[in-house]
């Protein structure tokens, strides 16, 4: 299976993205990170460490579960319904620049749900999106502000992100979906 990002490339991408965030927002002030469960959470934590190293200050970090904001609650006859996990945003979003972090940007529906959820928590001055991988095929007018790598894919493929914190090692792979016999 083709590996499109290895550990080294993931690490360098996250460092570059941290610098881009600082450059675009002219510093670290007023920034806060929110990771989307599951793999946006460790990515947000790594970005927070990078931002602290480069910007010299700690950035508040939160965790978002978007299960209750999905638009496909009734459409899971085949796949399993996602398990609801805890959302934990221990700071006010009002007036902050929220850096929303997810592993793969695909249809954009997860991000649509995350935006709805964030707005329920307060009124940030801006929301910017980080995606480790952008695989295309958007179904909504959503784009990422910071991308680790653009990976052209077909809809018949799946993108699997492995992270040390959740899966034991860092790697991004593209698989061909098994066709049902």
């Amino acid at each position: 299976m083709p590996v499109v990002m290895d550990a080294d490339r993931i690490g360098r991408s996250l460092m570059r993205i941290a610098h881009e965030i600082l450059e675009r927002n002219r510093g670290i002030e007023n920034l806060a990170l929110v990771g989307i469960r599951a793999r946006g959470v460790p990515l947000a934590a790594r970005l927070a460490a990078n931002l602290q190293a480069a910007g010299g200050a700690a950035v508040p970090i939160g965790t978002l579960d978007i299960t209750l904001y999905r638009d496909d609650l009734m459409k899971h006859q085949v796949g399993p319904q996602p398990i609801l996990r805890r959302t934990d945003i221990p700071f006010s979003l009002d007036g902050k620049i929220i850096i929303l972090v997810d592993d793969v940007l695909y249809t954009g529906r997860t991000i649509r749900a995350a935006l709805d959820a964030l707005i329920d928590f307060g009124r940030p001055s801006a929301i910017q999106l980080v995606a480790l991988v952008d695989r295309g095929h958007r179904e909504l007018p959503i784009r990422a502000d910071y991308v680790g790598r653009n990976v052209p894919t077909s809809r018949q493929q799946t993108v699997q992100v492995h992270l040390a914190e959740t899966d034991g090692h860092d790697e991004v792979e593209v698989h061909d979906m098994e066709v049902a016999p």
């Binding site: 579960d65 609801l84 805890r86 959302t87 709805d116 959820a117 329920d120």
Partner: peptide
């Protein structure tokens, strides 16, 4: 346990149902 957090928000409502 995950639902409990919703009761601590300013807007205590999610669109799930």
């Amino acid at each position: 346990e995950a639902m409990k957090e919703i009761g601590t928000r300013t807007i205590k409502k999610v669109p799930a149902l």
